[in-house]
Design a protein around this nucleic acid. Structure first.
Lengths: 219, 219
DNA sequence: AAATAAGTTTAGGCAAAGCTAAACCTTTCT
DNA sequence: AGAAAGGTTTAGCTTTGCCTAAACTTATTT
């Protein structure tokens, strides 16, 4: 009962991403894994026969406890590998997702734990997303989007949402990275763009679509 | 033409291992990949349609140039990952093969080269086997089996053949590892076992089945 | 309440990859 | 040379995983 195909794992992951512990429609699921409706229906049946999901026909699919555990383990692997790729191999944070998508399917409990040790048991991945721990616990997602901050507040960037390559390129251009601190100097009431001032005094504007994908904590 | 399944890659690898550039019988191939005859025949047909092998029915299968290149690339990945697992993650040399067998299928040119850099472009894996280089060149396999040495010679262990877990356990017990130096103090003409003396003066006997899997160069 | 739209599942196909049993080449032995 | 042996390929079946088209539910709209 411990041996799953890559396809199965991808459906489990998608289910977790879309619904967490709640129910998900088969169409949305199909969409997420890049398949068509009937493929998802079928896949879900296979998962149900392994006890990983519960299905109510025409209503939705939900992870069982086993399914949830598996989902979190896969996510753990994914984010550990992303951390490895960035911290050790020097990949840019925009490049690692597709590679981690492959690496997350490698099966070896020992490997996962040795990798975690090697990375000093990280709690967040290079995007600031929480890494599920070996016991299944998930550290809380930190930070709130930049627009939630009010003018004058000091903040530290702790997380970015994966909004595609261009988004990351723009971040790199502006030299925004996790851990950097800024003061929010201005908010446009016209287009909700905001102005940040870095510690070195330099300041710059961020569009709403940029800032809504950047999460920070106040200092 | 650059996208292969794991199964395909396993057949390619097996072909390379069994025959190098020469022809291999379908039975031997099936055997190596852990399948039955007909499965191999079929697999080989798929490979042929992709231009990776040439088949002469009832005679044998041979890698094409493309197939050979692919085989060496997979072997490169396998041995780089083994090196990573031992050097960086602290695995024992007997544990890494099955994990590397999974990792070798990860597709990302950039990953392979970054990994190689990270490991300082190694030329040999933890067993002393040569790692094919990015340009396809393969460093020569060094060393000869211990019995080929004559009494009194000084030698350095440079390679061991993968002869199963028990073999590695025995090596660890005797504290034999790559790079260690010994003097061959005695050869039994009865059972071809040999006696080695370590640099610290300790000496011990090695059975023929042990020594035939240990390779060394003379000093 | 009936009709239409939207989403889900069934039905039936296809390719990859494996299997067993049967047919078919090659080689080897008498 | 003819027959038996051994290895290889063909035939036909299974599962996974995906597809399209058709049937079926559910939800929405009139």
């Amino acid at each position: 009962m411990n041996n799953h195909t890559e396809s199965e794992e991808n459906y489990i992951k998608a289910l977790y991403h879309l619904g967490g512990e709640g129910a998900v429609a088969s169409g949305a699921l199909a969409n997420r894994v890049g398949a068509k409706g009937p493929s998802a229906t079928q896949a879900v049946r296979r998962l149900a026969s392994k006890g990983l999901v519960e299905v109510i026909p025409y209503k939705g699919v939900k992870l069982t406890l086993d399914g949830l555990t598996l989902a979190k383990h896969i996510l753990r692997k994914h984010r550990l590998w992303e951390t490895f790729l960035v911290e050790k191999l020097g990949f840019g944070w925009e490049e690692v997702h597709p590679i981690a998508e492959q690496l997350e399917h490698i099966q070896s409990r020992e490997l996962v734990e040795k990798l975690a040790d090697y990375l000093d048991s990280p709690v967040h991945d290079p995007h600031g997303d929480p890494i599920p721990q070996a016991d299944g616990k998930i550290p809380p997602a930190t930070g709130k989007p930049l627009q939630k901050f009010s003018q004058g507040s000091s903040l530290k960037v702790v997380r970015v949402e994966d909004a595609g390559t261009d988004f990351f390129t723009q971040l790199d251009l502006l030299e925004i990275s996790l851990g950097k601190e800024y003061t929010l100097t201005s908010v446009s009431s016209f287009d909700s763009s905001i102005q940040l001032q870095a510690e070195d005094g330099e300041s710059f504007w961020l569009s709403h679509s940029m800032s809504s994908n950047i999460y920070a904590i106040s200092l």
